[in-house]
Design a protein around this nucleic acid. Structure first.
Length: 448
RNA sequence: CGGGCUAUGGCGCAGUCUGGUAGCGCGUUCGUCUGGGGGACGAAAGGUCGUGAGUUCAAAUCUCGCUAGCCCGACCA
């Protein structure tokens, strides 16, 4: 993409209404524009990042054997009356009437809708286990939206729902989500710590939240430092080898890790003092097992192997996709701007032409741009006639992983400068070396 | 929902107390110079001062209502 043909309205100054760094940077980078309280338009750069995160979330869900679909944003009140949540949910739910004065709502979550789909199509244990999910806009009418997309009223969320014959099977699904979520956050470039959580309005018996440490986070967390060293292991996982998956979950749930809501000071004090960490964190995902809370009232039954009609056991699981954009920035920025983790960067590299009136510069830039572009590498080429200083500042601000700097000075020596945004490390390379290095780095990114 | 604050050009702000020609910086446009870290000089465009009513010869400025946004708390992916 050539910058001269793109839509990237960057701001030099910090808008007054933005208080936390991710919100400020998203506005300054021209990623979002607030439309009204807690509701944002996603401008091209922000939209690209949102879609990259979404792709990774999809990929990991599909690896775990879960099936993508799409449900609507507007739902009929009747379904929520069946589950009893139409009254329970309160003012957070945006209620809407149509021209016939029928009652609708803008979905804050989809348990009722998915249960309705399930019950009208599945009636045998033979169709289980089943996990369906979608990534869709949600709306919760927060009293006080703030922090940009981190706590908007409208938000983009992956939500999934598992249907199983019994509790044991449903716990397998729970564990599958547990592990796939860890992998998802890792791929996005975040370390998320699973913590025991309250079940809230979703209800149920088991729940874990996944939290990313950040001092601007809204949750207070207490955990054992050893959690920071755990990983889910390398390579492919067979999500249906239940005991293998269970072992991973056990490793992650053994050390103490709780949010303020479930924190138990006495248990925490059993953690050796040098391993106790108290921090602020951002919640980026949550998983629930709630048994038959919805299947019983909504009559989602299947016939068991013994020939009896039994309510299905369910769980639900969410990842805040739009919130993740903010969370990533909170976790990865410096005083100059954003530093995108490579898998979610809106472009893989930025190409800076330091003198757009120099024919040699133009020629070399065009070559780099075409060569990398034809290999499927996304490049943002600053081909504008601005001065070098503002080009550098802009590129640092939007935080693309690599910066390719082409200027008359370097070209005299036959060299192009390559800067790695995260470290600021700069190397002078020939055109051939540069193309090779970027291509290699890009290939490594694809091998997940 | 309780408490506090704000609303003036695209962005950041001054002007309001003490009523009297709407201003500054950044950005934008044009020109000249400049060209490796948000450059210089010159010219220009752009504002019903959130909104409605009131007081007054006169309102960005005073009074009352409304709306929107921000902050602290409670609540939440």
């Amino acid at each position: 993409m050539k910058l001269s043909q793109y839509f990237l309205p960057v701001l030099k100054e910090v808008p007054a209404e933005a208080k936390i760094i991710s919100h400020q940077l998203m506005l300054r980078c021209g990623m979002i524009k607030q439309t009204t309280a807690g509701i944002y338009s996603w401008l091209p750069l922000g939209f690209k990042v949102l879609k990259k995160i979404e792709e990774i979330v999809h990929d990991e869900q599909i690896k775990a054997g879960h099936i993508p679909m799409l449900m609507p944003t507007i739902q009929p009140a009747e379904l929520w009356q069946e589950s009893g949540r139409y009254d329970d949910y309160g003012k957070e739910m945006l209620r809407i009437n149509d021209r016939q004065d029928r009652n609708y709502l803008y979905g804050p979550t989809n348990e009722e809708l998915i249960t309705d789909i399930f019950r009208s199509n599945v009636s045998s244990y033979k169709d289980l286990p089943l996990t369906l999910y979608h990534i869709q806009w949600k709306f919760r009418d927060e009293l006080r939206p703030r922090f940009g997309v981190m706590r908007g009223r409208e938000f983009y969320m992956k939500d999934g729902y598992n249907f199983d014959l019994n509790e044991k099977e449903a716990i397998n699904a729970y564990n599958r989500h547990f592990v796939s979520y860890l992998r998802t956050f890792n791929r996005i470039g975040l370390q998320a710590i699973p913590m025991r959580a309250e079940t809230g309005p979703i209800g149920g018996n088991y729940s874990h939240e996944f939290l990313v440490l950040a001092n601007t986070g809204e949750s207070k967390v207490f955990f054992d430092k050893t959690l920071l060293d755990l990983d889910t292991g390398q390579g492919k996982l067979d999500y249906y080898q239940n005991t293998d998956i269970e072992k991973v979950v056990e490793r992650f749930t053994k050390p103490y890790a709780r949010t303020e809501d479930t924190h138990d000071e006495n248990l925490f004090l059993e953690v050796p003092e040098d391993r106790r960490i108290e921090s602020k964190a951002i919640e980026v995902g949550q998983i629930f097992y709630f048994g038959t809370k919805y299947s019983e009232p909504m009559k989602a039954f299947v016939v068991s192997p013994a020939g009896k009609r039994v309510p299905v056991h369910m769980g639900s699981h969410g990842i805040g996709v739009s919130r993740l954009v903010g969370a990533i920035i909170e976790a990865s920025h410096d005083e100059k701007g954003i530093i995108w983790p490579e898998p979610v960067a809106p472009f893989f590299a930025g190409l800076i032409n330091l003198n757009y009136r120099d024919e040699e510069c133009i020629k070399v830039c065009d070559q780099v741009y075409e060569e990398l572009g034809s290999n499927g590498i996304e490049i943002l080429y600053d081909d504008t006639d601005e001065r070098p200083g503002s080009k550098f500042a802009k590129m640092d601000l939007i935080g693309l992983p690599w910066q390719i700097v082409v200027g008359p000075k370097g070209l005299k020596e036959g060299k192009i400068e390559l800067v790695y945004r995260r470290t600021g490390e700069a190397t002078l390379l020939t055109l051939g070396e540069l193309l090779e290095k970027i291509s290699t780095a890009h290939k490594a990114l694809l091998e997940v």
